[in-house]
Design a protein around this nucleic acid. Sequence first.
DNA 1: TGTACACACCATAGATACAAGTCGGGTGGA
DNA 2: TCCACCCGACTTGTATCTATGGTGTGTACA
Lengths: 227, 227
Amino acid sequence: MSSTTATSPEAPAADRAYQHVKAGLLDGSYPDGELLSEGEVASALQMSRTPVREAFLRLQTEGFLRLYPKRGALVVPVTATEARAVVEARLALESFAIDKLAAQGDGAMTAIGEKLAAHPACDTAELSDAGMHEADRAFHAALVAAAGNPVVADLYNALRDKQMRITATARTHTARPRITHQHAQVAAALRDGDAALAKSRLREHLLGTVRAFGVAGGPYLDPDSAL
Amino acid sequence: MSSTTATSPEAPAADRAYQHVKAGLLDGSYPDGELLSEGEVASALQMSRTPVREAFLRLQTEGFLRLYPKRGALVVPVTATEARAVVEARLALESFAIDKLAAQGDGAMTAIGEKLAAHPACDTAELSDAGMHEADRAFHAALVAAAGNPVVADLYNALRDKQMRITATARTHTARPRITHQHAQVAAALRDGDAALAKSRLREHLLGTVRAFGVAGGPYLDPDSAL
DNA sequence: TGTACACACCATAGATACAAGTCGGGTGGA
DNA sequence: TCCACCCGACTTGTATCTATGGTGTGTACA
């Protein structure tokens, strides 16, 4: 389910194909607009086209590829607009998680706040780029998971995968200290039981991500709008 | 994307297989826990296993089936707990939509409120069961779509499909007048520009759905919790 | 020179063939 | 009677093959 699943050499061919293509998509080695063909990937991985086809289908339902009959598989171009939509959706789900924690009483919120405050993603420590990426992911995932709604958690993870592709394409190098600081701030607000503050800090944090995508404004996550 | 897509007789075999199986899943003709096989469906639809296999894969990523290697495709049992989680997730997204409309200024909210007030789903009119179902779906979809975030709208539609499967299984016959009345009330609150009221009425509405699932309480959508 | 058309090439969609894994029932023995 | 084992039916995983449709190029013609 997670995009970090390693592909063992003995995994089913379909899984290997899926992981291979998805990795290529996520790390940007398949650029936007590229037209992949089953055959290419199949021969590169030394398998038949059938498992590759399965992988393509999965990636299409996940929104990474768009299959054109008899044409090929288009690597869907991610626009800055869509990127903002994704981040906005993430904000919606994380805000929900915070609200729900708040509704469960201060205890729940404080507990998760403390746990998050100790999270590596709050620390400007020595982490590789990939490590930081993963820590960031884990931080937000933990927040959402704390709400205890697996359906929401699944939706959220899917969004993260989508965004990972975007950031990989854009190669945004937002200042790491700022990110870890903001994580810590969110965690602190939660620890203090201040849901509104946590949400507003979270919003600011995600807004920073959006700004890094480039053009500001547009219909999503307008800095001037309340949500 | 929508589950209401009709399958034309000349559609690709893979699509036909997908629609066929999904319809069976949604209307409850494939009961929970049933183990489908590609071969069965293929011969029923008079096609080869290949397109059926594709359909199964899609349905697995959508969470309706779980594929067991060399065993078959399990129709994932939906528990009342999961049903509540789905409804709670819907509430999260719809609330987000309302918040966002509110942030866009009263004009946007009023406009959508008026449009929704005139929606068939607000009317205790003569509608077949299926028609009512569809109207209800359209009502909520319109609300979410009004927020203008396609990513959120997609997530929401996926949730609706999931829930449809659940309600089909449970065959809940909640009082229709109550539902239409609640729809109208939500629309009215929006028209008046009262986001908080709209959200609270929406919450009450969805809670009613959850109650119809049976056992109340549990970790999700507890009537006593604020969200 | 510009345009229309025919054809070869390429990619997928779907069918079929084959290999391999899993489960359950039946049989034989203790 | 009970248990272990074996075998066969059934299922998916993967490969290969055929048919069909879309694209682009090269050529003939205006």
